[in-house]
């Protein structure tokens, strides 16, 4: 059996998490709250070390660094949510962030569509390629929203597309199962091999 503090900490925490499979219990609850607390602390510490501190120490004081004051003030406006009567100021960073994000979507997502379209322009010289096109166009038909009573052709195409989508999802499901079991195996191996010292 291991004598390392690190291995013991890891092993006890691993068992505490696995105990949740049985029921909610004090060991799980301590681990849950510890993990959430550490993750939140790490998140804030990481942001400070990698984003805020460099900006405050290196950027703001540098020539032309005044521009960095704007984002800092903009972000800080979010805290007005906690000041009664001034909550509306928090809408400014929210509005700008959402708009900026929406701009990103508009700028980059059309490329995804173009990529999928050009990728699907296959030569109709084999049964597989024709079937691919049928599955794709059928898939499009399942997402038609404006025709409550879809005419026969679109309904049939939609059904084929629906089955293609289900097959795709099923294959993704099956593909993930093995990978997940590999990860579980890794943790069981840690308990048996590193902690208990068995199976050498």
């Amino acid at each position: 059996m291991s004598t390392s503090l690190a291995v013991w900490t890891g092993a006890l925490l691993t068992l505490a998490v696995l105990s949740f499979l049985y029921d909610d219990n004090p060991a799980w609850r301590i681990t849950e709250h510890l993990y959430v607390g550490l993750a939140a602390g790490y998140g804030l510490g990481y942001t400070w070390q990698n984003y805020l501190r460099p900006v405050l120490l290196n950027q703001v004081g540098a020539p032309g660094g005044w521009i960095w004051i704007f984002p800092l003030v903009l972000g800080a406006l979010l805290y007005t949510r906690y000041i009664r009567g001034w909550e509306w100021l928090a809408r400014f960073p929210m509005g700008i962030w959402i708009g900026y994000g929406a701009g990103y979507i508009l700028a980059y997502l059309p490329r995804v569509v173009v990529g999928q379209v050009t990728g699907s322009m296959v030569a109709l010289n084999s049964l597989s390629n024709v079937a691919l096109l049928v599955c794709l166009l059928g898939g499009f038909a399942t997402f038609v929203f404006t025709l409550p009573d879809r005419p026969g052709l679109i309904r049939t195409a939609g059904r084929i597309g629906r089955y293609a989508i289900l097959i795709a999802l099923g294959v993704a499901f099956g593909g993930t199962v093995l990978y997940r079991f590999t990860l579980l195996y890794g943790q069981v191996h840690f308990l048996v091999h590193d902690w208990l010292g068995l199976g050498h």
Binding site: V113, V117, S120, M121, V122, L124, L133, L137
Partner: peptide, 12 residues
């Protein structure tokens, strides 16, 4: 998009 795919497949 569907028409583009179809047209593209025919052109290809």
């Amino acid at each position: 998009v569907a028409l583009l795919v179809l047209a593209g497949a025919i052109v290809h």
